[in-house]
Structure formats: C-alpha cells, structure tokens
Design a protein around this nucleic acid. Structure first.
Lengths: 355, 355
DNA sequence: GGTTTTTTTGGCAGCGCTACCAATTTGCTG
DNA sequence: CAGCAAATTGGTAGCGCTGCCAAAAAAACC
C-alpha cells in the first residue's frame, strides 16, 4: 500500500527567446495613460474619464471617438490612480484563518461572484488562526483602503478592533453570531449548532457520547459548538463521556486518529461528535476499516454538511451550514452599503444514516 | 436517510447603537496622512516616508520621533497612493478557474504564505473555467497594475494573451507544462500524468479500462490527461473500452453517478480511470455501497493525491500533484523577479490499494 | 432672431505618496 | 579651526485619475 515513486520531473526548460522580455526590465512598459487617449481622440481628459465610467453626460459621437482611441491604443485604465483620486475604493479585503478548511474557499466563492458582478475586487490574506497575525494582516489590508474588511468570527485582538473601528471602512464578521458584531455580521449561531447536534443525538437515544476535535483555542467557532454541545448533554444528565482533542488543524487523518485513540481508551461509547465533517469522515473511515457497525455499534455526527458526506455509502449525519450564501449575503450587504446588523442564515440538520 | 429540518435561524438583530457609525456616512473618516505625521513629528514628509519604508538614511533620534507620532496618530500608510507614486506595485493577481476544486485553494495557500512574507498582496477572481470570463477578469486585474498575473494553464484567448503581453507585468501560468509558456510556468505535465497512470494500470495487468470524467472542454488539463492516457492505452493494444463524461464540474457525486452509469452500460471492465480524486472517491463509494470488490473486481485510479484518499479504508491509487508547492514556487519567482522559464515540479504516483 | 435652458465639454486642482535633488548638519582630518 | 566628505534632511514635482467649475455648444422657447 502506498509505495511512491517520484516521476514526471523533466529537465528545466531553457529561458525563452529574449525578444519578448527585453522591456521586462522596466516595470510598466509604455503604459498608455488617459491623457494620451484624450489626445488621440481629440477630446479633454475629463471627457474620456466620463465616457469610460459611463458617468455624467457626453454625446454619442464623442463616445465613439473615445472608444475608438481606447481600442486603438489598448488603453487599460489605472484603478490605482482612479481610486486615489476618487473617494472610496472598490476593494474588499478578506482576512481568513485558512484555505485548507473548505469553509473559507466556499465563503470566498460566494462573495467573489457577487463582487465581480459589481466590479469590486477581492483581496485576501491568511492568518492560520493566529490572532496576532490577523492583526498584522488586517493592518496591511487597511493600507489598501478597502471598502470593507471581512473577517471570521468575533474573536479579534483589541488592537485589531481599534484599528478597524478607526479605519472607517465596513467591517463584516462571518460565520458566527454568538457575540456582538462590530458592524455587519453574517452567518449562524455555532452555539445553536452545538446544541442542536446534542439534542439530536439525545433524541435518538444515545447516552454515552464522546467527542473528537481539533485545536479549539485557535478555531473558536468549533470551541463554541463544543461547549454548547456539552452544556446540552449536561442538561439532559448525559454528560460527555470522553474527548480526544488533537493538536493542529482539522483533517480526515486527524479524525481517524482521534477516533482510534478515543476508542482505545473508552470502550462503551455509543456516539461520537466530531468538530467537523473532515474529522467525522476520518472517524467514519476508521469504523469502516475496523468493521465497527454504524450507527448500531457507534454513531457519528459531524458539522458543515460537505457534499462528500452525502455520497459516502451511508450519508453522514451532520449540520449543513450555508457557507456560500454567507459569502454572497456579506458581499451584497457591502455593495449595497447596508446598515449595521447581524444576519442569521441558520443551518440545516441532516439526519443522514450515521447517527 | 437525509431528512432535513431548517433550524437555528433567529429573528434579525436590531441595528446597532448608532453612535458607532455616524461617521460611516463618509468614506474614510479623519484619515491621517503622511503630511500630518510629518507635522506632528516636526520633520519633513520625505523623512517620514524614509523611516516608514526603512529606506535611505535617517538618525535613530528622528526614527523614534516619527514612530511615536505614527503611534500617537494611529497612522496607516496609504498603499494606493504609495503604489501610484512609486514604480511597480506589490499586488499579485490570481485569475483562477474555481474555488470549489481544492486544487486552486491549495495553490493560493502556497502562494499566499510566500507573498505575505514579502509584503505582497494577493488579489483574485474566479473564471468558472470560462475563457471569455478569464479575459474580462484579467483585464479588470490589469487595471490594478499588479506585479504579476497568475493563471491556470496555457489555454487563453488571443485577447487575453495580447493584453497580458502588452501589460508588461509578469505572467505566471500554473499547473500545466504541456505548451509554450508566455513568461513563467510552474507545474507539471498533465500529459505525463495521464501517460503514467495508463502505464501503471497496464503494468498491473488491467486491460479492459474505462474512464469517468467531467467537462473536459472547460478543464483542459483534465482533457490533456485523458488524451495521453488513451494514447498510451492504444500504444499497448488495450484501447479504452468505455467512457462516461458528465457535464459540469468534478464532484464526488458526479464520480459516483458516472461510475454507476458506466457499469450499467459496460459490464466487463477491470479498471476505471477518473478525471480526478473527487470523481474517483465517488466511484470508490459506489463500489463500497454496491459491494463491488476493489481492486479484484474493479480497480480505481484517480488524480491529485488528496489527503482524504490516504485515509479511506483502502488508500486511493492516484497521482499526487504538488499544488501547494506550485503556489510557493510561483510566488517566489515573482518576488525574486526570476527570468522567464518553465519549472517542472513533477508528481508522485501513489500505488495505493485501489488498483 | 434673440434669449434662456440644457447638454457637452475642457481645465485644473488635488488624492497621498515617492523619487530626486539640493540644502543642511555632522563628523573627521590635518 | 578651517576644509571637506559623509550622513541627514526638506522641498517639490509628479504618479494617473476624478471632481468641480466654468466655458462652449446645442437645443428649446418666445
């Protein structure tokens, strides 16, 4: 199983014919400016600007002449200059914890579609779930004077909050509603998700429940789910029996490993709650491999509602979160300059077949 | 299985206390400028600029005074203005086909880490595998005068190529080496991957081989793998027996569905090549669910080497591609302003247990 | 035809910063 | 302490565009 060979690496290609990149020494070769277009079209600069932005008034005749000149010279407007000259940019900054966790690409995907339609531009950076890094990256983002900054959740350093507040740009906190929004928040309640997950398992009659999770200090949303999950169990006199928390990010491998360890220590569990679907799939595979009957011998419950969980031989019992919609709504609110508010998109409990 | 309830959606929260967003009417409230910092520190503007960029010479004393003023006023440099004034920006533009296919988040992840270290900023947009959209989005990105534009593969419209060439910024083509690079290319050969996959299956003794894929016209890299896969089979007198190509993007669900359809039509296959691991996992799950023995009754081979494929009860036989490394190397080359070249990162064949 | 309106236009002052250059200060040497 | 080199510093002209205002042209009206 899994012996590996490195193949397919060929010799490096020779540098390409030099002709095409002699000018590459200089940053922006022969950049055509608006002034040149104006000159070529025989009109004033502001006229060109108006035509290109389709803003203000101008005759059809001049429009054609300007467009012809633009075409002929291959003019590409400089939005750096445009943004500086005008008020407010059309940049939206995303400061996200990770790109490995599919949650964030999903949010970006939803947002990006809306932003592109509205001629906004998305910029992003990745914090690795590190609040200090979030602060540094948020600062770097603000330097681009974005129209909005989108962040994950409510847990930010004091410095981050102060900086964002002072910036005057819109602040959007995503995927969490358990706390006070700085400005706009779009998502759902992780506490509610944890609670509903526990209630579901209890309803199904499971009483000896364990947990397999990843680093909760970093992923505070997973932490919120877990704590309200436990509270709900406690409230029903079926406290959590055992937990296994792995360092590092969530992954299928960690889920498998976590369940293996948990079962090695605790033999009489009847259900396990995982910090998310990646982890849960790992647990599911572990059971398949070990011949542990699901859900009769052990039930499995995840979080996120990934597509893959619907196609496994037994569909995964989980909670589906509106990740793409979160991105879409957030972007729409920024574009529309909506008033400060928290928007709850809710989530769905998928009963599946593993619990 | 899979009954679903919508829960967790609460009433919308009321707008927040107005005090904090009265100033929100104006775009950038009370923006502190470099001139104000200079004033406050009692030095010239250029001195502040030098200190902040740590460029040119200045005494330790002035450094302190400037930094104190920066701190006191909460100054955030305006990179829009900075970029306009200086030559060359520190923006890198990504024009990627998709965020659903984990390949691209992986590339972004690798690149983003390197770019952040070097104080570059990543901006992106998503083409949905549409060359026309790629052209439009590339044009939009060029308006930000990025230091480099990163694209997937070699297939671009004439207009895109012309525009990129004229822009004078670096052009990086990712994840494909089967063609001529415009400037820099980083990735591996998809043709080689298709060839090696076929060779592996033939070596293992499979002769009645089928294919399940997704829309190949859009994902040209998958198309290249498939065509060289078929060529290799032909060269060994074991031509492809059947194929099932699904419209739309690759997904686990489509993989399952594709294999189901393929097997309904063709009963005597001994192996199936999938367009990627997502599809292959779908096929794998189908076999698990249907009790089709793997690999004795049917072998499965994928592409990408996703982590999840290593944790399934039987590790997936596939080819692992260096996606994160592709992003890293690409970013490094841009940062270092490397000469035009094609860098082949190769790939690994993972024998796994499904073929 | 002469006005009054309305529509189109061009000029130009910045947006906030960097790059260049010249002026100033500091440090050394003999 | 003069005399010169080196290290610091400030002034200022743009970067390419937009926003404002006034001028010019076209349209509408009496």
């Amino acid at each position: 199983m899994g012996i590996t060979r490195v193949i397919g690496r060929q010799a490096e290609r020779p540098p390409r014919k030099p002709g095409s990149n002699v000018t590459m020494e200089f940053k922006h070769q022969a950049t055509v400016t608006l002034a040149e277009v104006a000159e070529a079209a025989g009109v004033g600069e502001s006229t060109v600007s108006r035509v290109l932005r389709n803003h203000g008034s101008f005759s059809g005749k001049t429009r054609e002449r300007v467009m012809a000149a633009v075409e002929r010279l291959g003019y590409v407007p400089n939005r750096i200059a445009g943004t500086l000259a005008s008020t407010g940019s059309r940049l939206v900054a995303f400061v996200i914890p990770s790109l490995s966790n599919i949650v964030f690409p999903d949010v970006l995907r939803g947002a990006s579609a809306v932003l592109e339609e509205n001629r906004y531009q998305a910029v992003f950076s990745v914090t690795d779930y590190d609040p200090g890094k979030e602060e540094a990256l948020a600062a770097a983002m603000l330097a681009w004077r974005p129209a909005a900054v989108m962040l994950a959740g409510y847990e930010h350093t004091e410095g981050t909050v102060k900086m964002l507040r002072a910036s005057g740009c819109r602040i959007v906190e995503l995927l969490d509603l358990d706390g006070d929004a700085l400005d706009i928040a779009v998502g759902f309640s992780n506490r509610a998700a944890g609670r509903e997950s526990a209630a579901f398992l209890l309803r199904r009659g499971y009483r000896r429940i364990g947990y397999v999770g990843h680093d909760l200090n970093r992923d505070t949303r997973a932490g919120k789910r877990f704590s309200s999950f436990c509270e709900t169990l406690d409230a029903h006199d079926a406290p959590l029996v055992a937990r296994e928390i792995l360092a590092g990010a969530s992954s299928v491998e960690n889920g498998r490993l976590g369940l293996e360890r948990l079962l090695a220590r605790t033999t009489d569990l009847d259900a396990v709650y995982f910090s998310n679907d990646d982890m849960a799939l790992g647990g599911y595979f572990h059971c398949l491999a070990q011949g542990i009957a699901i859900p009769s011998k052990l039930a499995i419950f995840g979080y996120n509602g990934l597509d893959i969980g619907r196609v496994t031989p037994q569909p995964l019992s989980t909670i589906r979160t509106p990740r793409v919609a979160t991105g879409q709504i957030a972007a729409q609110m920024v574009v529309a300059n909506a008033p400060p508010q928290a928007v709850d998109l809710g989530f769905e409990l998928i009963e599946g077949a593993t619990a």
